[in-house]
Computed example of a mutant assay.
Amino acid sequence: MTTLTHIDTPSTSRARGIRVQRGIAIGFALLAVLIVLGAVLVPGFVSPRNMRSILLLAAFLGLASLGQTLCALVGALDLSIPYLIGAANILYPTLLVAGVPAWLAVIVVVALGAAVGFGNGLLSFKLQGQALIMSLGVGFAVVGAVQLYTSLGSAFSGTVFAPVPNWLRNFAAFNGKTFGFAMPPVVILWLVITGSTIWALYNTWFGRSIYAIGGSRVAAARLGISEFRVWTVIHALSGGMSALTGVLLLGFSGGGYVGVGDPYLFTTVAAVVIGGTSLLGGAGGYGASVLGVLVLTVLTSLLVGLGLSFAAQQAIVGLLIIPMVAIYARSPHIRNQI
């Protein structure tokens, strides 16, 4: 049996780069059009208060999409993200009730999320033919286990009632100013993480290794790049960022609910696609996903402002994703990769 393996050539690399640039340009155009439509159709859409709310919601989706972007760059998808978000959202207040200091509880939850992500990466690497379902199964197992743990001695399952620390509330939904800006600290955190991630992807050996593996596994191996190491580390980062997002969402909502991560099951994937990152790896980046996050968040805010139902919102988002995927469907890189 003959196994075909894609190896990049200058022509295919240029073609892939052009298509990514085209996707990013379309993303910027979509964002501009949506903002203009919102300003015309929805009173107060471009007001500072509404823009601040959009950025706040975008920050949570952006943090959750970081791991999904890294996974997509090597040709993987992490469907455990929403379940780790929900698990962290109820585990953190449970630890607070148990007497664990708030700062230590954050470290414990994020570390556990990273450990689960590492295990997810380990399993999916060994069974790459079933990696998509593997990550989904890991997510189900983890959120189920956390629900069992948090329901011990309680009449409630999936919901945790506990006082949320004031510093966490202020961090996730602060109404004052941070460093002179009228922005919640979580938005500032997202901007810092965004800048650091973009810099690391293009200026470190690990970042270039991610692109190398996504572009050609054979070529990456010949360069001495450990696919196993990169694969497991990015899944660990995805798990840690998912857990952090779950903790921050607790400060935003004020109560632990296991289903808080459900909307992030496909919105993280949608943000990656709309931004212009190829789901088969090697093209795109977190900056592109940030663009996709902003497009999705502005679009959702516009649809809500127009009074559309959730079902209608889903239909419109789906119609938006289809042409973005079509941009990459005829790429030589995708046609030749097996």
Rank of each mutant, 00 (worst) to 15 (best):
V109H: 02
G281T: 09
V160W: 05
G281F: 13
A32T: 14
L249E: 00
G17Y: 01
I133K: 07
L96F: 03
T297G: 03
R22S: 03
I133W: 10
V20S: 07
M51F: 10
I7S: 15
V142L: 01
N203G: 03
G117L: 13
L4P: 00
V273G: 07
L237C: 13
P185C: 14
G75F: 06
H333I: 06
V46E: 02
L30F: 08
Y92L: 11
N336A: 09
V33R: 03
L57A: 06
S196D: 01
L237W: 04
G259K: 03
G214K: 09
G251C: 05
V164N: 10
G23R: 10
I188M: 14
G307T: 07
T94M: 13
G75Q: 06
A102D: 13
A172M: 04
R52Q: 11
F179E: 01
V36D: 05
G318C: 12
N89L: 08
L123R: 13
L132E: 08
F28D: 12
A283P: 11
L34G: 03
S124T: 15
L91C: 04
V142K: 00
A32S: 10
L306G: 02
L191H: 05
G292T: 02
Y286E: 06
I210W: 09
M134L: 15
R19H: 00
R52K: 04
N175H: 05
W167K: 03
L302R: 02
F171S: 04
W167I: 10
I85A: 08
L249N: 00
V74L: 09
P43I: 08
W167H: 05
A221E: 14
S242W: 05
Y286P: 01
S80K: 03
S209W: 01
L122P: 07
V116W: 10
I316G: 05
V106P: 03
G62W: 07
H333F: 07
G254E: 11
L66D: 11
A105Y: 04
I35H: 05
I7H: 15
